[in-house]
Amino acid sequence: MMSEFKYHRPENITEAILLKRDLGDAAAYWAGGTDLVLQCKSGKRRIGHCIDLTALQDLSFINAAKGGYRIGTLTPLSELERLNADTPHLRTIRDVAALMCTVQTRTIATLGGNLCNASPSADLFVALAAMGAIAQVTGLGGTREVPVDAFMLAPGKTALTGDEMLTGVFIPAPDVPHASAYRRIARTVVDIALVSAAASLTLDRTGEKINEARITLGAVAPRVIRATGAEEMLTGRPLSDLIGTFAKEVGATAAQSAKPITDIRASAEYRKNMVAVLVARCLISVSTELEAGL
C-alpha cells in the first residue's frame, strides 16, 4: 500500500522546477511513474510530494535538430516504438522500445522516466548510451547537457541535482555511415533484461574504416557501462574485419569490462559469458546493416 503524499500538477516546466526547488528531496517528478509507483507501493520509496508532469505535454515530441534528433522527456515508449524511423539510431530506438515492459505500460512509461529511474538493466538506457546520445537537463540555473553514458551514477541515482529535470535527449545522426544495435537475454517475451549490450559504429566518409566505436553493457555493473577495451579494439579498424572471428574476440574483451553480480535473475558468470555473445551479435548486426547500406 502506498503511503500518503501530496499531489501537484504544474502547468509548465518553470512551475514544475519551482515546485521541486521549494519541496526539495521530499518531492519527486512523476512522469509516467510506472517505476515510481511500484517503488512507492512496495515501500522501497516514500515521497512526500508527487509533481505530476502529465500537463507538460509539450515535452512529448520527436523533432529533427541540427546533427540529429531531439526526443522530449515525456515521449511515451509507445510513441518510440511507432517511430517513423529514417536514421539508423532511430531504428534501434524503435526496436528497443518495442521490447520494453508491456504494450499497455509502454503507453504510460516515458523516455525520461526510463533514464531517470537509472536501472542498470534499462534497455533504452543501454542503447542510447551506445549511440552517444546526450541528456538535456534544465534547472533554475539554466540548461546543461550530460552524455547519457554519464547520466547514471548508481542504481536509482542520476547526475540530476536539486531542482533539475531531464527535459529531453539528443540523438546524433552524423552524416557519415553509422549504425547501432541492441541485444539482450530475456526469459519470456515480456521481461527485464538479464544482461544486455549495445554497439554503435561510426565510419569514416569512405565507409571502410571504423572512426568511432561505442559499446555499452547493461545489468553487469551498478550502472550502464561502456566496454572501453572492446571499443579500442575496433577504433581505426576496417569494417571488413568484423567478418570472421574478430567480432567474437571483441565480445570476449567486452566481457572483461563486465562486473556483474549474481541475483535472482542470473549469475555473475552467466552474465559475463553472455556479454561476449551479445556484443559479438551486436557487432555482426551493425556491420551487416552498414555493409547493406553502402
Binding site: 517475451v189 535472482i264 535473475r265
Partner: peptide, 25 residues
C-alpha cells in the same frame, strides 16, 4: 519459486520475476 537461503522467504513472489508464458511464447 525461489527461497531465501537464510530465511526461506519467497524471493520472487511477483510476476516480474516469476515468469509465466505469454501468448507470444
Amino acid at each position: 519459486l525461489l527461497f531465501d537461503s537464510e530465511t526461506g522467504a519467497v524471493r520472487n513472489g511477483n510476476l516480474l520475476d516469476y515468469k509465466v508464458l505469454r501468448t507470444g511464447d
